[in-house]
Amino acid sequence: MLEARLEQAELLKKVVDAIKDLVQDCNFDCNDSGVALQAMDNSHVALVSMMLKSEAFSPFRCDRNIALGINLSSLTKVLRCAQNNDILTVKAEDAPDVVNLMFESSDSDRLSEYDIKLMDIDQEHLGIPETEYAATVTMPSPEFQRICRDLSALSESVSIECTKEGVKFACNGDIGSGAVTLRSHSDVENPDQNIKIDLTEPVALTFSLKYLSNFCKASGLAKSVNICLSNEVPLLVEYGLAANSYLRFYLAPKIGD
């Protein structure tokens, strides 16, 4: 059986909020190393990959592999019944029909319990190769969100160009064009504001801003975001979570521009 307790329901609430507009029905694959999720959007343009390691829970128990097929809109309805600071316990039997979510208030005696019916989801699982990216940009997640939002007003796509001078987000639309260039920046007093660019070779790729803006819904999960690029491979946008856990989004590049 599975029994996994999170100190704060907020983590799962935010993860589900960040991905529910991109993917609808997902398997949460549980085993002794933690809870993993991989799902593509309907158009097969983007892929979500989440890992919540067992260390992120306390305690965590999962005796055998269990796939919890859950509709994220149903999960959202139930998670709305939890306060951010509630302790969240997820329970399921070995061959479950339902998953049980229990919310306990940390400062009162309230205990809420919900069951969500599970679905059989036949999901294609993709092998994501280990990639040494040509460029990795680490920047404040709100800054990335703002850039995506600002450029979305002008165009449907953005070119991301990394050189040793910095990273340039540029777009071209009907009303004109825009570009934001960032250079490496180190703020000792406020390290959340740091911008780091690791570059082995220059990269230039074009991506859909609609998808990038969707990924940015995860901005509340981490103060900084890693944006990893190599020519002609999907972009990786990674939000690091506590206990070596992560929420990753992969986006296929636009072709032919």
Binding site: M40, V45, L47, H125, L126, G127, I128, Y250, A252, G256
Partner: peptide, 14 residues
């Protein structure tokens, strides 16, 4: 989605 790459052409079935 003209000109948009597909993620399945980059990642293998596994």
């Amino acid at each position: 989605l003209a000109g948009q790459g597909n993620i399945t052409s980059f990642f293998s079935n596994g």
